[in-house]
Simulated scan of single mutants.
Amino acid sequence: MPVPRPTIGKSFDRSPEHADHLFIITGGPGSGKTSLIKALALEGFRHTPEAGRSIIQDQVATGGNALPWIDRQAFAELMLAWDLRSYREASRFAGRVLCDRGIPDVLGYLSLCGLEAPPHIRRAAELFRYNRTVFIAPHWPEIFIHDAERKQSMEEARATHQVMTETYAALGYDLVPLPLASVSERVSFVRGHISAR
């Protein structure tokens, strides 16, 4: 006997979920955010990994097409699924959790690509809320390098920073730029801001 399909209606309307203990660190590629999160993890902070890099590694390993240089829309859908799962898992933790990007980054990515964001992706960014304070790593040409997963140009990295700034601001988040400083100085900067909240 088939399982009856749910009726879409008011019973499925949801109020925004707020996970104030989840702090996003975002920015363009090659701006030092992942190195910062790794350093903070060594000091005991829980963290979620970046979706994009892991998805690229998995798709390359399995011969998949959901890659930013093949099918950007499919890549965005996988990022959304990854970030929703990360949100759910991190929400269960006690204490502060650092997120290497978040659900709004999927919106920013689609905007950067000139693609229309489907309604469900916009809804996800509005529904699943993080701490209002979002750390953003400025574009930093001196430390920008390419690697197996990072194929963006310097100009694309700069544009990504700008798009993420606009995307998060439009969603009502307060952006805190990270200083162009050493990893240890950035660790102290983030610690100071988080402990004040």
Score class of each variant (00 low, 15 high):
Glu116Cys: 06
Leu78Cys: 03
Leu115Cys: 03
Arg123Ser: 12
Gly102Leu: 10
Val97Ala: 09
Leu171Gln: 10
Ala94Pro: 15
Thr133Asn: 08
Asp13Met: 11
Phe45Arg: 10
Thr133Gln: 14
Pro29Ala: 08
Asp174Tyr: 06
Asp20Pro: 13
Thr165Lys: 10
Glu77His: 03
Tyr130Gln: 10
Glu89Val: 14
Arg96Asp: 15
Pro118Val: 08
Val3Asp: 09
Glu155Thr: 14
Ala51Arg: 01
Val3Ile: 10
Ile143Asp: 06
Gln59Ala: 00
Val187Ser: 05
Asn65Tyr: 03
Ala81Leu: 08
Ala39Ser: 15
Leu22Trp: 01
Ser153Asp: 04
Arg158Ile: 10
Gln152Pro: 09
Ile25Leu: 14
Asp13Cys: 13
Leu171Ala: 11
Lys10Pro: 13
Lys33Phe: 02
Ala61Cys: 02
Asp71Arg: 00
Asp174Thr: 11
Gly9Ile: 09
Arg5Ser: 12
Leu80Val: 05
Ser153His: 05
Leu78Ala: 03
Leu178Lys: 00
Leu178Asp: 06
Ala94Gln: 15
Leu180Gly: 03
Arg191Cys: 12
Ala157Cys: 10
Arg14His: 06
Glu126Arg: 15
Val190Met: 09
Leu80His: 01
Leu80Arg: 00
Pro2Ser: 07
Arg14Asp: 02
His120Lys: 09
Tyr87Trp: 11
Arg186Leu: 07
Tyr130Glu: 09
His193Pro: 06
Glu17Lys: 05
Ala94Phe: 15
His161Gln: 11
Val106Asn: 02
Glu17Val: 15
Glu126Trp: 08
Ser54Lys: 09
Gly64Glu: 00
Phe23Ala: 08
Thr62Trp: 01
Tyr109Asp: 01
Pro179Leu: 04
Arg132Leu: 12
Glu89Pro: 06
Asn131Met: 14
Glu166Leu: 14
Val187Ile: 08
Glu142Phe: 04
Val134Tyr: 05
Leu107Ile: 13
Gly95Cys: 12
Glu116Tyr: 06
Val163Gln: 09
Phe12Leu: 15
Ile70Leu: 10
Ser184Leu: 14
Leu107Thr: 10
Ile145Ala: 13
Ala148Tyr: 00
Leu107Asn: 07
His146Phe: 11
Arg191His: 09
Glu126Thr: 11
Pro141Ser: 04
Arg14Ala: 13
Ala61Met: 05
Lys33Val: 03
Glu155Ser: 13
Ile103Arg: 03
Ile55Asp: 00
Gly32Thr: 03
Leu67Asn: 01
Val183Glu: 08
Asp20Thr: 09
Ile145Tyr: 09
Ala19Asp: 05
Gly44Asn: 10
Ile8Met: 12
Gly9Tyr: 01
Gly63His: 07
Pro118His: 03
Ala74Lys: 01
Arg101Phe: 04
Leu22Met: 09
Asp20Cys: 11
Ala148His: 04
Arg150Val: 06
Ser184Val: 10
Gly95Trp: 11
Ala66Leu: 02
Ala117Arg: 00
Ser91Gln: 11
Ala90Pro: 07
Asp83His: 03
Glu149Met: 08
Thr165Gln: 14
Gln162Leu: 15
Pro68Lys: 04
Pro177Ser: 03
His193Asp: 04
Arg53Gln: 05
Ile25His: 00
Phe23Gly: 07
Leu22His: 02
Ile136Glu: 06
Pro6Arg: 10
His139Pro: 15
Asp174Gly: 06
Glu149Leu: 02
Arg191Gly: 03
Phe189Ile: 08
Val187Asp: 02
Ile70Trp: 00
Pro29Gln: 13
His18Thr: 07
His139Asn: 12
Ala41Arg: 13
Ser111Thr: 13
Pro4Asp: 03
